[in-house]
Structure formats: C-alpha cells, structure tokens
Computed example of a mutant assay.
Amino acid sequence: MLRNAVRSLWAEPRAPHPPRRVWRDWVLVGLLVPTAIVEGVLHDPLVWRPVATLLGVVFAVALLWRRTHPFAVVAGTFGSLIVLDLAILLTVREPVGLTTMIFVVLLPYALWRWGSGREIGIGTVLVLVTLALGLTVDRTGLVDSVLGSMFLLFPATLGAAVRYRASARVRELDQVRLREREQLARELHDTVAHHVSAIAIRAQAGRVVAVADPGAAVDALVVIEAEASRTLTEMRIMVAGLRADEAAALGPQPGVADLEQLARSTGPRPRVELELSGDLDDLGPSVDAAVYRIAQESITNAVRHARDATRIDVRVAADADCVRLTVRDDGEAGSAGPVGYGLVGMTERATLLGGSFEAGPGPDKGWTVEAVLPKSGAAG
C-alpha cells in the first residue's frame, strides 16, 4: 500500500483543490516577523547578524505562499540555507541563524501536502541536503542528529498521510458520483425512451387521422399529453433520488404490477400481449424493478426497430427460485436488435442481480429477449 501511495503522489500533478492563503497564515506571519526582528537585534552572540535577521524575516513572510506555491517556497528557503551552510563551512564554521527559524519545519509538510509529484521529489532532496549540511555545521552528536532529523522529516510524513487520505476521499466521492450518474442515465434511458416512443406513435397516428376524423386526433393529443406528464413525473422522481433528502427516496419504483399498464400504453400497433404466471408477489424490490425495466426496454426496442411487427409477447414466469422474463416480437428476422446502451444496461441489471440475460434473433422471425433473475436478487 505504501508503494502505491508513493506512486500516486509522484504521478499526481498537484493535490486536488489547493487552498488559498488563510487567516491562520497571516496570524502566524504577524507573530514570526516581529519575533525574528527582536531576536536578531537582541540575541548575542549572533554571527552575521544582518544576514540572519533578514533571512528570518524573509522566510517567515514566505509562509504566506506555502499552500499555493509549496515548491517555490521550499526551493527558495532550503536553497538559501544550503548556500548559507556552504558559506559557513568555508569561513566562520559557526552556526548562523535564529532560533525563530525553527518554523521551517512547516515547509516539508506543505510540500508533501500540496506539491506535485516531481516537486515533492526535488524539494525533498533539497531538504535532505540542507539537513546534512546543518548537522555538519552544528557538529552535533549521533543522538541529537537522529532526533533532529526525525523532527524535520516528521512533518513531511504527516503531510503525505493527510494528502493520501484527502485524495482517497476525493476518489471515493468521484466513484460514488460516477455510479449515480450511470444509474441515472440507465433509468432515464429506460423510462423516457419508452414514453417518447409512445408519444411519437400517437403523434403519427393523430396526423394520419386528423383530416378524416378530427375527434381521433384530439384523442391522440390527450394520450400524448398524458404520456408527456408521466415522463416528466418519472424524470423528477429519478433526479430527486440523487438529492440528499429522505423524501426523494420514497418515490415508488415500477415493478411487475405495472407491466399491464405498460402494455396498454404502447397503443394498438404493435399489440403487446402480457402473460403472468407463478408466484410473483414475493420478488425482491430490485428484481421487481429490474423485470419492469428490462421489459420496458425490450418493448421500446421492438416498437422502434422491429419492422412490420404486429405483436409483442411478454411473458413473466416465476418458480420457486427464479423469475424468467421473455419478450418476443413477430417483426422481420433480426430487425429489433440494436447494439447500444439499452442492451448493455439490461445486461448489467441482470448480472448485478446474479442472473443472466440473452438477446438475439428469434427461431423463426423477430427478436427475442430473455432474462432469468433470482427471486431474492442475491448474486450467487
């Protein structure tokens, strides 16, 4: 897991949604700048007093950009410290710096929390070089060196842990949103496509009979209005299901009991014949909804694509363990089998419920769809 975390950090261009400067940074800088100035004036002895004081103030002010530009702040700060340590080794060989500058331990955290992958790598090298030169200049013992190294590097570890947790949370939320959108897309396709097909059929029929029988055209408009209202209602229910309120989840899902109404809503041609057999009262809710949706999609495909079809047979049969849905039309051979999101969605529904789905040309003519689902909806 650690290797995957490091790999993801290296490949990640930048932590998601890096924050802007916050009020805490201003307060911190407001405290550190005067402290650095006071220590630079009063601390004694202090080698290279003007240089140490200036660096303390500049590094403190740079904290304002540690969230938005972590690598630039780390490179500037630790790069300056490297140059300073090299100059010390070549000259006075005495530590130069303010105790106030201990705040630089915040920078490795910022680098690993908000920097990009390559910035983290380069910035960490600068931190380690600075650490090595600092230990050489200070000439500390082994124990102090180990403790000092841990003190400087622990914030980097903490920053990496916080970043990984935040990134994992973002990815998890993205996956949830993606699944919700896919589900909504399937529901919209299954429901709206059926109603729109019925509206189109009724509109075509009304146009044909408008001149000869205006009353029939008016009846067609009434049916179109009803179908459009149902479509809008179901769309509102499905979209509301994505909201975080409990009332939206109370909308009933259509099931086997609604197949009769579905059969009547397609109109006189092609005629839909429905046959129900077996005990269909104890179906799991997901299976009940899946039978309806698969039947709806199959009927919609037959109405839209089955050429010269006059009849669509829908049969739902249940036995002790499973329910079988069969939809057949009498159109031209192989004329109702579009390969698209509809068939993919039906296959996914059946598979997720532990069942099976098949679709293909009928033995004589038309198209046959058959789905077998466990009554409980539990995958085997």
Results as ranks from 00 to 15, higher is better:
2 L>P: 01
2 L>C: 01
7 R>G: 08
11 A>Q: 14
11 A>I: 02
12 E>N: 14
12 E>R: 15
13 P>D: 07
17 H>C: 11
19 P>L: 13
20 R>T: 08
25 D>G: 10
28 L>W: 01
29 V>N: 08
36 A>Q: 02
37 I>H: 04
47 V>R: 15
50 P>E: 11
53 T>N: 04
55 L>C: 12
64 L>I: 09
65 W>D: 11
69 H>F: 10
72 A>T: 15
81 L>C: 11
82 I>S: 10
84 L>T: 05
88 I>D: 03
88 I>S: 10
89 L>C: 02
100 T>A: 13
106 L>D: 00
107 L>H: 10
109 Y>G: 03
110 A>D: 08
114 W>S: 11
116 S>I: 00
122 I>N: 02
123 G>Y: 04
126 L>V: 04
127 V>M: 03
127 V>D: 01
131 L>G: 08
132 A>E: 06
132 A>C: 07
137 V>T: 04
138 D>V: 07
141 G>V: 04
143 V>P: 02
143 V>G: 01
144 D>T: 05
150 M>A: 15
152 L>H: 02
153 L>M: 07
153 L>C: 03
159 G>E: 05
164 Y>M: 07
168 A>L: 13
171 R>V: 06
175 Q>N: 15
183 Q>H: 09
183 Q>A: 10
185 A>E: 12
188 L>N: 02
190 D>S: 13
191 T>V: 08
193 A>R: 06
195 H>K: 11
198 A>I: 00
204 Q>G: 14
204 Q>S: 14
206 G>V: 05
208 V>S: 04
209 V>A: 10
213 D>G: 10
214 P>C: 08
215 G>I: 07
216 A>D: 13
217 A>Q: 11
219 D>K: 10
221 L>P: 00
222 V>P: 00
222 V>T: 15
225 E>L: 01
230 R>I: 05
230 R>D: 06
232 L>D: 15
235 M>L: 15
235 M>Q: 12
238 M>H: 12
239 V>R: 11
244 A>F: 04
244 A>P: 04
250 L>H: 09
251 G>L: 00
254 P>R: 13
255 G>E: 12
255 G>F: 09
257 A>V: 14
257 A>F: 06
257 A>H: 11
260 E>R: 15
260 E>L: 14
262 L>V: 06
262 L>N: 02
263 A>C: 06
264 R>S: 10
266 T>S: 12
269 R>I: 00
270 P>E: 03
273 E>Y: 09
274 L>V: 06
274 L>T: 03
277 S>E: 08
282 D>C: 01
283 L>T: 02
287 V>A: 08
291 V>E: 05
291 V>A: 07
297 E>R: 11
300 T>N: 03
303 V>F: 00
304 R>P: 00
304 R>M: 05
308 D>H: 14
308 D>P: 02
309 A>T: 03
310 T>Y: 01
311 R>I: 08
316 V>R: 05
316 V>D: 05
318 A>P: 02
325 L>R: 12
334 G>R: 03
339 V>K: 14
340 G>F: 04
341 Y>C: 02
341 Y>H: 10
343 L>A: 10
350 A>S: 12
351 T>E: 12
353 L>P: 07
353 L>V: 12
353 L>G: 13
354 G>C: 04
358 E>K: 00
361 P>T: 09
362 G>P: 07
362 G>L: 08
366 G>E: 08
369 V>I: 12
376 S>D: 11
378 A>F: 07
